[in-house]
Amino acid sequence: MNAWFSVFTALVAVIALVLLAMLGVETIGLKSIFGVIIPYVAFVIFFVGVAYRIIGWAKVPVPFRIPTTGGQGKSLPWIKASYTDAPWTTLGVILRMALEVLLFRSLFRNTKAEVREGPRITYASAQWLWLAGILFHYSFLTIILRHARFFFENVPSFVEMLSSVDGFFQILVPTLFLSDLAFLAAVTYLFLRRVVLPQMRYISLPADYFPLFLIGGIGISGVLMRQVWKVDLLKVKELTMGWFTFHPVVPEGLGTIFYVHVFLVSCLLAYIPFSKIMHMGGVFLSPTRNLANVNRSERYVNPWNYPVKVHTYDEYEDEFREKMKEAGIPVDKE
């Protein structure tokens, strides 16, 4: 499949989703479907799907202890071992996982040395992917947390703090959130990277572009709704609280942009269990990261270990006994 075809397919799919929502709400007037039924269905798919996938992984055993050692392992007491890159305690493993999950430790290793003028080699880290990844995930998280104001009747206090930090510069009214900017910038970078770098273009599938476009669409519709086509937040919260109290209502007067936003989010939620976005759960289960490098000091059991056909010493000696005796090698029989 041609790379550009992949981009095109994914883009068409997301545009189709946007049009579908617009058509459904504006022309046919299916507000209760787009405002209530689809979000509920999407949530259930997400909820059940994610649990199903993780339990699916959990059912498969890890037969061998195969940590990747990213540093000196624990051996003799006077040799300095790397506590988090080749951990030998549970705490070490937890720290390694925390660094991995919270700071993208492995991606950060992506140091690329560069030759500057002159004979000396200097090493500069080119960690743009890491940076974009961090920005993307953390701004996404901030945005989700900020949305908690629509999810709880009494808004938790951290949400206000988060929002005030996020809107620190007070640009525009309503304040433009830094996380929104970072989010859109990161999504754009991640997309451009895929199309500009030939090797990235080569490995990318429609399944890589689709979530990017979908997430980008969610971000754009959200920002538009906040800054351009404003909606009545009281009604928005009326609707969202309707979901969470199981008393769904569809208030009149919410703009189409809101339904587009909600529909795209629903699509994302429903898509996650079937997609690579499951890496958010999978990263915790990766056997090369979440196992301690205590291979030689602690027993590890393979639940399906089975006996195999081996060549025993007796068979071996039977074959070579005479020669062994001749060569003066001790033998068991005779």
């Binding site: 690329k112 040395a113 560069e114 030759v115 080699i121 090493y123 770098l197 030939p198 090797q199 080569y202």
Partner: peptide
């Protein structure tokens, strides 16, 4: 090949 081309042509250090 296209993909190797861009990698080789990228300005990087000799070790990488």
């Amino acid at each position: 090949p296209a993909d190797g081309r861009s990698f080789f042509a990228s300005r990087r250090n000799r070790i990488a």
